[in-house]
Design a protein around this nucleic acid. Structure first.
Lengths: 241, 241
DNA sequence: TGAAACCACGTACGACGTACCCAGTTTCTA
DNA sequence: TAGAAACTGGGTACGTCGTACGTGGTTTCA
């Protein structure tokens, strides 16, 4: 891996030389396991290498940089945005909703992926696959192709933004190494001083009545998603589904 | 700055000792300037220190870690989510829309902030201020407090997700150090091979008709935002404004 | 007039990504 | 069948990072 070529356009097996000791698939699998358990910054080339049982620099035979490892990880996870048994009903709204729910569930299983995929739009096999599937869901609805792209992009923006926020607190705990109790102990005095100032009545209400009729995170996700789909449906050229 | 206390609860000026050579405000300002111009990874404690004209370790008198610097940067930028001359018309929909547009514009001016603020939900002065302002926009609409929180969270999730995606390509260029031409040269052959496979007809269409009736990014943002607000408006307990 | 509380900052440590190099292995070619 | 070509694994080393720690100077209070 000497640098410039595209990560996704390499032959599986080189023509000459000894057979490789491992594979990019193995590398990806190990990296995902570490990131799931300990977060993205637990991933270093040295750590990956020892976990695989190889020398650090050997990884660079399979990948031209750490960035490539990240790309491999993203692509692998994106593969199950749509589970293999997902069916397209032909009802665009149900299909798109199922897709969004699947994306969220996958992102919750791999908490490091949402921030990455939100900020990296490089094409990769599974991202291409998912984009194609999503576009097929809104085909034949009387929209222009760019309108279809806009709709898909809108839904995905919402899902990504929501899940990032959803994971933010857990990530803060991981980043600081604190447990929930310690973290609260740090934030509460400040919030109390905010409330005491009297300048932020709504935030004050949040701290007092916020816990009252608690709304489940999944329900909040569904609410926003359904409102978005409502709004889109109302603007469709002709009512289909 | 010895570690555990909350960043936002320190006295402005210590009681004893010589007067500080600079300030957290100065530190924040320099950090934001660097990040705006060269991206977030251009920020290192050494770089900040030399730019300020101080010793590297002196920064730790003002801040207990690099993470605190990041928090200061975020809070400073969040301050102009709502420009100082922004008016609350009393029309919840117009106000919320103006807020969302303001957030996007601020995020575009500071391309590093969207990914950070999406994944960090720690309270800070300006974040609290913005949250309070947003909640006031949807007050008196007959919703419970948690419903209000859900609505605000939904809009913000969309804005954040959209802007992250919007900035993704530019960020990829910065990350790799390539210019647009070089980057295209790298992606195009792969995309051509994808199209040639015949398995992804929609992506193929994207490459051929995608550029035809080009939709402005701002218009796409507005579209999603307006559909979301449509959907929310339709579910409001009673029609007010 | 100490002593306490603060300040600036040099040195040093462990971790990181990766450029470069060399020796060994497989396969194609003559 | 010899040897060149194309690959392999991986050790060493460089520059960068965040920051723990300590030393010595300055200001303010008791």
């Amino acid at each position: 891996m000497t640098g410039r070529e595209n990560l996704w356009m390499r032959p599986d097996r080189p023509a000459r030389g000894p057979r490789p000791a491992f594979s990019r698939a193995r590398l990806t699998e190990v990296a995902i396991r570490i990131a799931d358990a300990e977060g993205l910054d637990a991933i270093s080339m040295r750590r990956l290498a020892t976990e695989i049982g190889a020398g650090t620099m050997s990884l660079y035979r399979y990948v031209s940089s750490k960035d490539d490892v990240i790309e491999l990880m993203i692509d692998a996870v994106v593969a199950d945005y749509l589970p293999p048994d997902a069916v397209m009903t032909g009802d665009w709204r149900a299909d798109l909703r199922g897709f969004a729910v699947g994306v969220r569930q996958t992102m919750l299983r791999h908490p490091w992926v949402a921030p990455l995929v939100g900020t990296r739009q490089q094409p990769s096999p599974n991202r291409v696959r998912m984009l194609d599937a999503a576009l097929r869901m809104v085909d034949d609805l009387g929209m222009s192709f760019n309108e279809m792209l806009t709709v898909i992009g809108t839904v995905f923006a919402y899902v990504n933004g929501f899940v990032e926020a959803e994971l933010a607190e857990a990530e803060a705990l991981r980043r600081t190494g604190l447990d929930l109790m310690e973290w609260m102990t740090l934030q509460v005095p400040y919030l109390q001083s905010v409330v005491a100032s009297g300048s932020y009545p709504m935030v004050a209400r949040m701290l007092t009545e916020g816990g009252q009729d608690y709304v489940d995170v999944g329900d909040r996700f569904d609410f926003g998603l359904d409102r978005l789909l409502d709004g889109i449906a109302a603007r469709l050229p002709h009512a289909s589904g």
